[in-house]
Design a protein around this nucleic acid. Structure first.
Lengths: 197, 197
DNA sequence: TCATTATGTATGCAGATACTTACTTAACAG
DNA sequence: CTGTTAAGTAAGTATCTGCATACATAATGA
């Protein structure tokens, strides 16, 4: 009939702003009024794009995951024989880890883990994240898609932990850029090598 | 004059309850009304013990740190020559890591890191925590109080990260007890050994 | 005993906060 | 042109929240 909906595009356009708000303020302090103001719209418009505030938050979680996946696969697509994908990602992260502050959304979510929907979104996100890292580790070890060793899985979790503590250290001013970089590079390499059976 | 104050004792008595509330609910959702109800007192009584809600939260942060320090030093006091302190702590954590859910207070705090007081409390807590782990790692490496190597510092951060990701994995149901235990034991041992120069 | 101070109860309040309602305006298909 | 529906504006509401106040009671030292 009349006037096609542009809801999907609008969602896509506002999502980065919404995600930044949640990253800046955490879940509770990010009020719907604040979100609307940052987006330059009225609150009810946000409620036409998402059913409630929780859905906006979950969309933000998915957004930051998709974004870092995008960045990482771009990094992997640069064909280079000298280093494995894992090594290239490690080097990239050593330089750019967490520079957008998006991980703060994860911390915010981890304070709301008794909500089953938020918990589910976070769990799925971590699962996919870990799966990706684990595949890179396994490839580095030379396992070609065969049943991946549980050592690779363990190393992948440890690497995720490394990234997390690097973020915490940055956030709290306990690790400067140089230290953080060395931490990720050295400990990362160590985990990568030492876990190779 | 008249009637001595028991404020310090009351604070001490209520602190575990306050800490649990923050761990269960995060910072914002833990209302002063909720705190009062859990403590079985009226709100204004809490405000006689601490100047404001933020102070209650910071007290909770310190409390969980003191508590785990207490547990750890008890673990270290069991004299045993076969294993280093680091190894004993690792083994203990592999079995009991995060079982009180207190680390959720940290996640809550990390969502409020733009508040300078909370950030300061968290940073101090992490600093002392890391310092402790680092000393254990250095001792394991045989460095007897001399200038501790930066490798020990790095390994200590990685170990803290390991604990963090183990907590996240537990919280989100991504790591069961068995996996979490193996992760801490194996990756922990690996970090301990491989970082020894 | 009495002045002083801790402890406890009840209630108040100004400003959020998530979400809604009522209504106007503008785009597009037929 | 026109009927339909999306996009936008403005204001409202019920409830919550951190914190304050007013007042009664009880313990204690002098």
């Amino acid at each position: 009939m009349a006037r096609p909906s542009h809801i999907a595009e609008k969602r896509k356009a506002l999502l980065p702003i919404v995600a930044r708000a949640f990253a800046d303020l955490g879940y509770r302090r990010t009020t719907t009024a604040e979100l609307a103001a940052r987006c330059g719209v009225q609150e009810n418009i946000l409620y036409r794009l998402w059913p409630d505030k929780k859905a906006m938050f979950i969309a933000a979680i998915d957004y930051v995951f998709d974004l870092s996946m995008q960045v990482w696969s771009r990094q992997l697509s640069h064909v280079e024989e000298a280093r494995s994908g894992a090594e290239r990602l490690l080097q990239y992260e050593a330089r750019h880890h967490g520079e957008h502050g998006h991980y703060r959304i994860v911390f915010a979510g981890l304070s709301e883990t008794d909500d089953p929907e938020i918990r589910g979104a976070l769990a799925g996100m971590y699962r996919r994240f870990h799966q990706f890292v684990r595949a890179q580790v396994a490839a580095h070890h030379g396992d070609r898609n065969s049943r991946q060793s549980s050592r690779a899985a363990m190393a992948a979790w440890a690497l995720v932990g490394l990234g997390t503590v690097a973020n915490i250290g940055r956030e709290l001013g306990l690790l400067n850029d140089r230290h953080r970089r060395r931490l990720i590079e050295d400990a990362g390499q160590l985990l990568l090598e030492a876990s190779a059976q």
